[in-house]
């Protein structure tokens, strides 16, 4: 069986090395960008250190916002790390290998339940993404693929361990190979997996509170032409969730994203949202983001009718004019 020995041998080596190299590269780029970042809220070494800490301990500030969803996410990630590392079957392989490594194992019962829990959450995430229209329109095919690739090693591993599919000829014979291949695919994918803030197109009003809350200057906006453009520097993100926490419209979301090209572009910014700006009806200057103004107008403030369409500067000069006339 040349194929199985290839995936168990060179390909496994390659996957592990690629994974390691990817992590190291990412870390180097991250350090470089974080240290050189010109726009942290509180510059200095302490801030850089805090940034590192927060990256490794992703207790998001956004937890309060969606507690149930956040709990599921944490469970999902705990299983994702714990099961493959402490699985008795995996450790047995490490013991057999030339490294002769071993460490404490997870009881089979626990491993089974955790795997099932993991798969259950993965299924929930997948279905949610397909069914909920708000999220579906914001999702790309890669987002669904990401869940499948992450879940596949667990699914095949479960079947492999329990021999569930032995009755099906091909799968029964090759389930081990598929499990290894899917695991390798997941390892390789990790190198291209980023965390990124997304601003929901329907909910985001362009107010830029997220930009203000971002401690590292990852999110930025500039008013260009008739638009306010939000841009993002992937490597600067420490996944702290400040933007998600701040967003008054629940429009910001911190999500994984597979992006092969971005791995080697540590300093390039990516436009993630563009909002049109409202024009003052008096001086034709652009002032506030359009969606925000529409939202304000919809709050139903009667008294705003006579001035809301003007920029603050024009409102002020109109007010001065009113005073001038009324005190004459």
């Amino acid at each position: 069986m040349a194929f199985i020995s290839f995936i168990e041998g060179p390909l496994l080596w390659f996957s592990f090395l690629f994974f390691a190299a990817g992590i190291v590269t990412r870390f180097i780029f991250f350090s470089f960008v974080i240290i050189k970042s010109s726009k942290p809220r509180n510059p200095g070494w302490s801030n850089t250190l805090v940034s590192f800490l927060r990256l490794f301990l992703p207790f998001h500030m956004a937890v309060i916002k969606k507690p149930v969803y956040a709990a599921l996410r944490y469970l999902f990630h705990i299983c994702l790390f714990v099961v493959p590392i402490w699985l008795a079957g995996h450790i047995a392989l490490w013991e057999e290998s030339r490294f002769d490594w071993t460490w404490g194992t997870l009881s089979d019962e626990w491993a089974d339940w955790m795997t099932l829990l993991f798969l259950f959450i993965a299924a929930y995430l997948f279905i949610r993404r397909v069914i909920l229209s708000g999220i579906r329109t914001e999702s790309k095919k890669e987002d669904l693929l990401l869940i499948i690739i992450t879940a596949l090693p667990f699914l095949t591993g479960y079947f492999y361990a329990h021999g569930t599919l032995d009755s099906i000829a091909f799968l029964g014979d090759n389930i081990g190979t598929i499990h290894i291949l899917s695991g390798e695919l997941m390892l390789i994918m990790v190198a291209f997996l980023f965390c990124r803030t997304r601003l929901n197109r329907e909910m985001c009003t362009g107010c830029a509170a997220c930009e203000l809350s971002c401690p590292t200057g990852t999110l930025e906006f500039r008013d260009e032409g008739r638009n306010r453009i939000f841009s993002y520097l992937l490597y600067q993100c420490i996944s702290c969730g400040a933007c998600v926490n701040t967003c008054p419209e629940k429009a910001a979301e911190l999500r994984h994203e597979i992006d092969i090209l971005r791995l080697f572009r540590p300093t390039s910014r990516e436009t993630i949202r563009s909002v049109e700006l409202k024009e003052c009806e008096q001086c034709n200057g652009l002032y506030a983001p359009g969606p925000l103004m529409r939202k304000i107008e919809n709050v139903g403030l009667k008294i705003t009718d006579d001035y809301i369409q003007f920029c603050p500067k024009c409102r002020r000069s109109n007010y001065l004019e009113r005073i001038r006339v009324s005190t004459r």
Binding site: R41, T205, C207, A208, A209, L212, S213, T246, P248, Y287, A288, L292, M293, K295, I296, L301, I303, T304, Y307, I308, P312, K313, R315, R316, Y319
Partner: peptide, 22 residues
């Protein structure tokens, strides 16, 4: 306060001001 400036855009006098933290 999250610094969204909605108050500025709705104030009839343009009175709100913002500190260095926005």
């Amino acid at each position: 306060c999250i610094g969204c400036k909605a108050c500025l855009w709705v104030c009839p006098y343009g009175a709100p001001s913002f500190n260095e933290d926005g």
